[in-house]
Design a protein around this nucleic acid. Structure first.
Length: 764
RNA sequence: GCCCGGAUGGCGGAAUCGGCAGACGCGGGGGCCUCAAAAGCCCCUGUCCGUGAGGGCGUGCGGGUUCGAGUCCCGCUCCGGGCACCA
């Protein structure tokens, strides 16, 4: 499309100006009130795609808007530059991951500049920079010394495609890897963990005070999965020395326990199974061992009879002293609670189904006040009064729970307890392109931290990237063999690297003080800028990154590295919608990217940015369709109309407003300032753009009025338009404002409106 | 199964606190300008009846509250997302 002005010339000119003027570089002693605006730092995958454009358009808008509102805005940029794609490229092409990554960073940085987005580039942080790695490793060791990092042998998620273990959070619901899509296997391996479970309660409670999308908070709550209940010991009948601990959220139903169940992997299975039942128990255990989690948890997992087996043993119900049979069943999971349950078929759906299939008794312990309906079948898990429950009879469920727990404590048979779905964070990865875990294994001294003076531990460059499925680090003798820092005897270096989510769990703190070479950051600098006032990113990080970063911030404070810093890092979170094309997410892997580049030549970065703001609510997904190019052209047309309006030689009357039309235009101008200001605060950019379009439409008619427009009224309106548009589509307003006033639009204060002019004329 | 969202013209969407439904844009139709086209400018564009003035209907479906409901309440349908043998 033909444009009213020279897009490329103007955009290049202003991008150069912003880079050179230092307007968006802020120092830590800046006297203005602070505002920390942050987009989630990207994995450098090459030139920016539409998802980036959308993200950085929002972020840049916030930065420029808050600057015009008089804030010192910290707006940094960096790169989450460790990760698997670079290593896979190395295996494929032989190119070192650093060379590959640095080139991708260069591309992304350039294309972000082309968008007209402004940052304090002096503060750039890259995960793989030794100056950053040093502090990632320092923090790791601080957490290690504080007991928040530990090593243990555990059944872990192994992704064959990535040749490494994964955190629970990286395994999708269907049991596949969130990166490669491969089916994840269980392997028993010695691995490194962060004790995120120590923070489960704080991570849960902290959510209440955050201005985050409700669904993100809900997802985190579900993921943490807190449930209150009780643990109690069930003594094995005839073996007073043996007891099985079970967890229940319904201790009030204990009198209705008619059997108990162990997870097939439970260590007690071996001990209690009678010779007569050995065969059927082993058969079920073998079946379960051969199944993936999906097969096991699928509801079509076979008939219920086949999914459980009697162990031959009985356990004593502590409330009734009666023995009940002990089963194993695949519906009880070793990974949750104690791996064993008391079964109350009358008040639990799964227990009911299992009891029915195995002919086990069902004893009701809760009656709703109005009784159960005649046709009621199955379990009843609602409120009511206790029956068949000894000393609990007649009590409400809540009170019965309390008294049952109290009784367990008095009798020494159990206690109230809380269980979480959240597991500790598995952070070790058997990969090369990540931050090395800075410890040394010594036969006599055990696990020895690398001394601070020797940090950072860097991976050697002379390694071979072969598709062997093994980390190049493990086979590099020069890297592995090292003297123990404590006893000087030959020792071996740890060859695992950290999950890249560790890097992204503290980068926002480093941005506050990125030049510090004495510490990860100075606590004063972090306290000055933190928390992030507006965090912007994709919904895909709702659990992983956002949960880890919250945990890390708290842990860093608790090990003494960040006194005075708030415990919640992100006050306000905005999650932008996805861009879809043909029904699936627009992404490099789907191969359905629409490169932004071609639009820079037609409608410019301004036009493309305006499109992303205008297309719909920022939080909603949108579909890239055949119509999209026409809408983008429409945004370019709007910019043209404004350009012509501001530059054409209109036949104007000099001086102030005098006609009805003048008054109407003045009112419209001030209403627009009010509306756009409000819309900016509430993330309603699509309506803000619409409001600007309305004013341009009105002015287009106004300059054609009989007798001419008032020069003052027109100037006021056009200046307002340029100021309001400046955070959204920054180049063109910068150019016009300079031509009109010889000043920089982004250095002006955000316009205010005259309250007397915005009250609509009342009609009945 | 449980928990969140959502459903408005041909399309994307607007209506912020219960007060003119459809702002703004795209698409479509007509006109001006032009030798012609592009660009630009102007007008129309929910739907049905009517030549017209005008009128009927209309925010997924069925009820309700209210002077007044896209918006609030009750009961559904469909779509999207999250969680899911979690004891």
């Amino acid at each position: 499309m033909a444009r009213a002005y020279s897009v490329t010339e103007i955009e290049t000119k202003w991008q150069k100006h912003w880079a050179e003027s230092g307007l968006y570089e802020v120092d830590n002693d800046d006297p203005r009130p602070k505002f920390y605006a942050l987009c989630m730092y990207p994995y450098p995958s090459g030139s920016a795609h539409q998802g980036h454009v959308r993200n950085y358009t929002f972020g840049d808008l916030v930065t420029r808007f808050q600057t015009m509102k008089g804030h010192a805005v910290l707006s940094p940029f960096g790169f989450d530059s460790f990760g698997l794609p670079a290593e896979n490229a190395a295996i494929k092409t032989g190119m070192h991951p650093r060379v590959f990554t640095d080139a991708r960073i260069e591309e992304l940085r350039a294309s972000v500049r082309q968008l007209g987005a402004v940052y304090d580039w002096r503060r750039e942080v890259r995960s793989h920079d030794p100056r950053y790695m040093r502090w990632t490793q320092t923090i790791f060791l601080k957490l290690f010394e504080a007991g928040l990092v530990y090593r243990k042998q555990a059944p872990v998620n192994w992704c064959p495609g990535c040749s490494t273990v994964l955190a629970n959070e990286q395994v999708l619901t269907d049991g596949t890897c969130d990166r490669s899509g491969d089916l994840v296997e269980k392997r028993d391996l010695e691995q490194w963990f962060f004790k995120i479970t120590d923070y489960a309660d704080e991570l849960l409670e902290g959510l209440d005070g955050l201005e985050w999308p409700e669904r993100v908070k809900t997802m985190q709550r579900n993921w943490i999965g807190r449930s209150e209940g009780a643990e109690m010991d069930l003594v094995v009948d005839g073996r007073p020395d043996l007891a099985i601990t079970v967890f229940t959220t319904r201790p009030d139903t204990s009198f209705g326990m008619t059997y108990a169940v162990l997870a097939p992997e439970h260590p007690m299975v071996e001990v209690v199974t009678t010779p007569a039942q050995r065969a059927s128990v082993d058969e079920l255990r073998a079946k379960v061992a051969g199944e993936t989690d999906i097969e096991r948890t699928s509801s079509e997992g076979g008939s219920l009879e086949k999914r459980g087996a009697f162990t031959g043993a009985h356990v004593i119900n502590p409330f009734t002293n009666a023995p009940v049979p002990l089963y194993i069943a695949d519906y009880v999971l070793m990974g949750y609670g104690t791996g064993a349950i008391m079964a109350v078929p009358a008040e639990d759906e799964r227990d009911f189904a299992f009891a029915t299939a195995h002919g086990l008794p069902i004893v009701r312990t809760t009656e709703p006040r109005d009784g159960l309906p005649e046709d009621h079948v199955g379990a009843y898990s609602g409120d009511g009064l206790k029956v068949n429950s000894g000393f609990l009879d007649g009590l409400e469920v809540v009170e019965a729970k309390r008294q049952a727990i109290e009784w367990l404590g008095t009798e020494g048979k159990g206690q109230g307890t809380v269980n979480y779905r959240l597991r500790d964070w598995l952070v070790s990865r058997q990969r090369f392109w990540g931050c090395p875990i800075p410890v040394i294994h010594c036969e006599s001294c055990g696990v020895v931290p690398v001394p601070a003076a020797d940090l950072p531990v860097l991976a050697p460059d002379d390694v071979e990237f072969t598709p062997s499925g093994k980390s190049p680090l493990a086979s590099h003798e020069g890297f592995v063999n090292v003297a123990c820092p404590t006893c000087q005897q030959p020792a071996r270096r740890e060859t695992d690297t950290m999950d890249t989510f560790v890097d992204s769990s503290w980068y926002f703190l480093r941005f506050c003080d990125p030049f510090d070479d004495e510490a990860p950051f100075s606590p004063e600098a972090a306290a000055r800028w933190m928390p992030v006032d507006q965090y912007i990113g994709g919904i895909e990080h709702a659990i992983l990154h956002l949960l880890y970063a919250r945990f890390f911030t708290k842990a860093i404070i608790d090990v003494g590295l960040a006194p005075g810093v708030g415990r919640e890092p992100f006050t306000r979170l905005f999650t932008q919608g996805m861009i879809r094309m043909d029904g699936s997410k627009m992404s490099k892997s789907k191969g359905n990217l629409v490169a932004p580049t071609k639009y820079y030549e037609t409608v410019g970065a301004d036009g493309l940015r305006l499109f992303h703001l205008f297309v719909g609510p920022p939080a909603d997904d949108f579909d890239w369709t055949e119509q999209t190019d026409q809408v983008i052209d429409g945004c370019g047309r709007f910019l043209d109309r404004l350009w012509r309006l501001a530059t054409a030689d209109h036949q104007c009357r000099p001086g102030e407003a005098s006609t009805t039309e003048d008054a109407e235009v003045r009112r419209a101008t001030h209403r627009t300032i009010k509306k756009v200001s409000e819309d900016m605060e509430r993330w309603s950019y699509n309506t803000a753009v619409a409001q600007l379009m309305e004013l341009v439409n009105l002015l287009t008619r106004y300059v054609k009025t009989e007798g001419g427009a008032s020069q003052d009224v027109l100037d006021e309106a056009i200046d307002a338009l340029l100021l309001l548009l400046a955070p959204m589509a920054p180049h063109m307003p910068a150019e016009l404002y300079e031509r009109r006033h010889g000043a920089h639009v982004h250095e002006q204060l955000w316009p205010t409106f005259d309250a007397a002019l915005v009250t609509a004329e009342t009609e009945t």
